[in-house]
């Protein structure tokens, strides 16, 4: 089945333009459509000039002007029209999509209609979707397609990897995310370390008193580690809780939010490292502390 995927400018009600991510589905099967239809049916794409718009785009970037001054924009709905490359498009459905890094509205239409909307190019076909027969060896099928067409062919997993690699290699996302995470880690370690160290300095005399009274370094070390673990756990709990709350609050917006368990493990590891770093500085100070400090004024 042919599939078109491309960026096309849509002319809105107020005459402004908005670039949209247009997907043209195979006219017969409509394979590759949106995962969830909120209004209308996927088959409505077969109606004249029919397009399906994602809910976030309909509410936000493709929304109509407020009916009253200072009012809220009116979401695009079934029956509303757009212009895609000077051609009329009628909204026949509203869909819910998995959010991506890109914030452009997503518009679905049929492959043949997408050909009309898209600016003329020599080859407009983006992808060909293949559905294997039950029991077919996917790897061999992929190889057969490669051999017979000379085109690149991928399994579902290979295509996912290809997409991820594209973002990793060709966009600034990993660098920006990496820098953000690194900065967060450095700033977190510095602040946590400094705060914890200050706490130790403020209580140095108390540690000295305990040492003078016969408390061993091992016991003091355990005390500091316990405090560090407690502080780290509270901080981690608050951080994860607030993040989850943020994600929940953003569930109906265009922001893409995903909070997999791997992220929990990753952040727990990060917090543990920060806590260990902060505790080590304090432990060193306390272990080197002369108990005679208790008699200093």
């Amino acid at each position: 089945m042919p599939l078109y995927k491309g960026m096309i400018k849509a002319r809105l009600y107020d005459g402004t333009f908005q670039t949209c991510n247009v997907t043209g589905l195979d006219d017969t099967t409509l394979i590759g459509g949106p995962p969830v239809m909120l209004k209308g049916k996927l088959e409505d794409l077969r109606r004249s000039d029919g397009v399906i718009v994602d809910i976030d785009g309909a509410r936000d970037k493709l929304a109509k002007k407020p009916t009253v001054n200072g009012g809220k924009p009116v979401p695009l709905d079934i029956g509303d029209t757009l212009e895609l490359n000077d051609r009329r498009a009628v909204v026949v459905g509203i869909a819910k999509n998995t959010r991506t890094f890109q914030s452009q509205p997503i518009i679905y239409t049929t492959y043949s209609r997408a050909m009309l909307y898209a600016p003329r190019e020599r080859k407009l076909l983006s992808f060909v979707l293949v559905k294997a027969k039950p029991g077919e060896d996917i790897a061999r099928l992929v190889q057969r397609i490669r051999d017979s067409t000379g085109l690149a062919a991928y399994t579902q997993d290979e295509f996912k990897t290809l997409t991820v690699n594209y973002f990793l290699k060709n966009t600034g996302i990993p660098i920006n995310f990496g820098i953000s995470v690194l900065l967060g880690f450095i700033v977190g370690a510095a602040i946590a370390g400094q705060t914890f160290y200050n706490f130790t300095l403020e209580n140095l005399r108390q540690f000295g008193v305990l040492k003078a009274m016969g408390t061993s370094n091992w016991v003091l070390l355990r005390m500091i580690m316990l405090q560090a673990v407690l502080v780290g756990s509270i901080g981690y709990g608050m951080g994860v809780g607030l993040t989850a709350l943020f994600g929940y609050a953003m569930r109906n917006t265009i922001l893409a939010f995903k909070f997999p368990w791997q992220l929990l493990v990753f952040s727990a590891t990060g917090v543990t490292l920060i806590v260990i770093f902060a505790a080590m500085i304090s432990i060193r100070k306390v272990i080197k502390l002369e108990p005679a400090v208790v008699f200093k004024g």
Binding site: V209, V294, G297
Partner: peptide, 8 residues
């Protein structure tokens, strides 16, 4: 046993 000026 210890008694300190600043109680500690």
């Amino acid at each position: 046993g210890f008694v300190f000026q600043a109680y500690n």
